[in-house]
Simulated scan of single mutants.
Amino acid sequence: MTNSVDPKNLGKVVVLFGGRSAEREVSLKSGAMVLAALQRNGVDAHGFDPAERGMIELAQGGFDRAVISLHGRFGEDGTIQGVLEWLNIPYTGSGVTASALAMDKILTKAAWISQGLSTPDYVRLEPGFNVDAVVKRLGLPLIVKPAQEGSTLGLTKVKTVEQLQAAFELAFKYDPNVLAEKFVSGQELTVPVMGAGNSAYALPVIRIQAPEGNYDYHNKYIGNETKYFCPSGLTPEFEAEVQALCVKAYQVLGCAGWGRADVLVDEGGKPWLLEMNTSPGMTDHSLVPMSARASGVDYDQLVLQIAASASLKASGLNVGGTR
């Protein structure tokens, strides 16, 4: 990970944050910290909340690049990426297709399975689904979650047959696409990945220890009881294996810029891919900055490097200082 980015070369930067998704509050925190880091380093950076300002204003802003700090729908699903491609504003993170693919957990799993990557078995749930068939295939406990939400919103750990329908109804409130997933008991890890294609590489693995193993919204963003270990404490050989798996998962989806893969290691020591985040959080509780620090890159340097990676994906054109 290179450390030298000249802030003067970044031009006029817009930081997109807030938005209309269920993760708006986290996005506001991420974006505010990213904006402050850019401004602290002399970058001509400006905040922009798409939920409060129109795309015409974005188009007329004269921005040289966009740093996406939006999470969830309309920010991480290819929507804003398509707008920025159309406006010819280079942006951070994955392109339209990879963003949309990674946002949909069902399509993500299908892509990974097609390439032989390990991810827990799953069933798509639709109204009127056969409860007994789902339990027979996946066993109990199992996980039910919306296919296109993040931050564990709408997620339920189902321990009994009787809980399954209510879990589906909760997830369905967030997204009409719902999946039931085989529960994997074990150690939770997360792995940031940077770059694109054959140049993609993983940052140090973070091992997560949440209260009672419950890494929910509160324990991610609000409480301070969750413990994070980076260095992870894994053997170097196993850490390298997990990193290689996450880089492959990132490449299969066509991700670019940066992302973060969530992994569970079962009691037999096998890693299982859970999901890929293409616009990870950048708050004081966030994990990509933690991993970067372990590799010798502080928060401000990380933000500058992410900003410098902005590009147009549809045309294949990288930033050259002008649009």
Rank of each mutant, 00 (worst) to 15 (best):
I68T: 00
T79G: 01
Q39G: 04
G93N: 06
F74C: 12
G82Y: 11
E25M: 12
G72T: 03
G72H: 03
G62V: 11
G93K: 04
V96F: 04
L101V: 13
V67M: 04
A51N: 02
M55I: 15
M55N: 01
R24Q: 10
F48L: 09
A102W: 08
L28Y: 04
R24G: 11
T92P: 06
G62H: 13
K105R: 05
G62R: 06
A22I: 08
A51Q: 01
Q60D: 15
G95V: 01
P50Q: 13
H71W: 11
F17R: 14
S94I: 02
T97M: 12
V83D: 04
P90C: 06
L84C: 10
I80N: 03
S99T: 04
R65K: 15
A45G: 07
G19Q: 02
R65S: 03
L28K: 02
L87V: 12
A36D: 11
R24H: 13
L35V: 07
L70T: 03
I106R: 07
F17H: 15
Q60M: 15
S30G: 08
T92I: 09
R24M: 13
F48S: 05
Y91F: 14
R53F: 09
M33N: 13
S94E: 05
D64P: 09
G54Q: 09
S99H: 05
D49Y: 07
V67C: 06
L84F: 09
D64V: 00
A22M: 04
L38W: 08
G82E: 11
V34C: 03
A32G: 14
G82K: 09
D49M: 01
S99F: 01
P50C: 15
A51G: 03
A32M: 09
D77G: 05
A32V: 02
H46L: 10
R24C: 10
D104N: 14
G31Q: 07
A37L: 09
N88I: 00
R20T: 15
E57S: 06
A36Q: 12
A22W: 12
I68A: 04
A32K: 14
E76Q: 08
N41S: 02
V96W: 02
L107H: 02
V96H: 00
E23C: 10
L101W: 10
E76K: 15
A102S: 13
K29V: 15
V34T: 10
V43W: 07
S94T: 06
G82R: 08
G62L: 01
S30Y: 03
S30F: 00
G62F: 12
I89F: 11
G75K: 03
M55K: 02
I68V: 09
W86E: 13
G19Y: 12
A36I: 10
G31D: 04
L35A: 11
P50N: 14
E23N: 11
L38D: 10
R40Q: 12
G93L: 02
P90Q: 10
K29D: 12
V43L: 04
S27Q: 12
G19F: 01
P90N: 10
R73N: 13
E57F: 00
A66R: 00
L35E: 02
G62Y: 09
I80C: 03
S21E: 05
L70P: 06
Y91Q: 10
P50L: 15
